[in-house]
Design a protein around this nucleic acid. Structure first.
Lengths: 209, 209
DNA sequence: CGAGTGATTGACTTAGATCAATGACCGTGG
DNA sequence: CCACGGTCATTGATCTAAGTCAATCACTCG
């Protein structure tokens, strides 16, 4: 549990100025309750503090299409800052705490504080990068290659060790695999000597070229 | 071919001020040539005008990990604006034309022109959204549901028709399916009456709830 | 007219999803 | 302090949808 927290904490960091961070206000939602609705006027940017929120779009017949499932540490509705209404619904799927950063406050800050603006841009740009990379990873069909891709991108400076951020189950989700598939793949890679698996880590074996 | 062009043109639009757009300079690269290298000082933001560029990271043993493959209309190295060096290599994979927007010019513009800064943020925020949605889509395992997800998100206002942006083959790539799988899935959906397929379009059949 | 590409369909194979069972571990409450 | 419920980790068996290989037809372009 602590490990997951740690992993999530590092998800996005302190890009917003303290003044704004302080201005955020927490809200609680029970499963099924809305954070905001499509076409409603935008009030600001949300950070998920605890729980999960799904962003969905409803079609005429009431069918919902999930755009994104946000969990602790994620920001949602960044784009709402530049739009007058929300373009999808946000619904809590668990007991959830979110923090709301008022839109006008943020925009005003960006206008007079170029540094804050840049920090925001940088954060977004990094997210774009990271998302593109994840998407790239999903183009890899073989489970083993997908794991390799992940390991290659997440090893430490020495390039030999990857520290697992949370449970393997979570990792499986992140990789778009079932946990069984991941367990098996790791077991095979270890059997082949491609990796070693000390507790909480994965060590890459250089011999596997 | 024109259809592909059209699809790509609309990928990202005119978020940057004319002054900057004019300041962009075109460069040509042959397959295998570098646009920039990791750890080299950042000079600016690139727009792929023609061809494709892969962003890769090399590990100690020379193995390359693909982070992203950019094609016409894509911007690359947005994050480089806020970093002093590139964090990966960019290599042309075909005969490629890119347009370079100098970093200092952009940053200066953002500093004095809050509107331009906001436009950039908005563009990034939209990209984040769109990428998240694509990633969400890749979590859907069934080809049919993946197609449904795509159709639901890309139908016109009336909600009954989706205009295909390019070839079905391209769409297959976008959906992370082989073209055969896509053809078959569409054929089945048509056979089941879930969709109709006039030339260049797909019509959703409301009866399929 | 022939080359190149997209669209389509068939046959076959397989990797990964699914269903299931088990052992290890952990925190909790009696 | 220990038994119990919950979750993670792991492995087995089975199934199936999607990938792979391959062939055909339609179109377009020079």
């Amino acid at each position: 549990m602590r490990q997951i927290q740690a992993g999530q904490k590092r998800k996005r960091a302190g890009w917003l100025p303290q003044s704004i961070r302080d201005a955020g206000s927490d809200r609680t939602r029970k499963p099924g309750e809305f954070l905001f609705r499509r076409d409603a006027p935008t009030v600001g940017l949300y950070e998920v503090v605890k729980g999960t929120v799904k962003l969905v779009r409803l079609d005429a017949s009431g069918r919902e299409t999930v755009l994104y499932v946000a969990s602790a540490g994620d920001f949602i509705a960044e784009a709402s800052l530049f739009s007058s209404t929300y373009h999808c619904d946000a619904i809590a799927t668990t007991k959830t705490v979110v923090r709301l950063y008022p839109k006008n406050l943020l925009l005003r800050e960006f206008e007079r504080n170029a540094e804050a603006a840049q920090a925001f841009m940088a954060m977004l740009a990094e997210q774009v990068m990271s998302l593109r990379t994840k998407l790239e990873q999903r183009n890899i069909h073989s489970a083993r290659d997908r794991v390799r891709h992940y390991l290659a991108l997440n090893r430490d400076i020495a390039g030999r060790t990857v520290t697992l951020p949370g449970t393997l189950k979570d990792l499986a989700g992140e990789l778009g695999l079932t946990h069984e598939a991941l367990y098996r793949t790791l077991a095979e890679m270890a059997a082949d000597g491609e990796i070693e698996r000390p507790k909480g880590k994965i060590k890459l074996n250089p011999s596997a070229l």
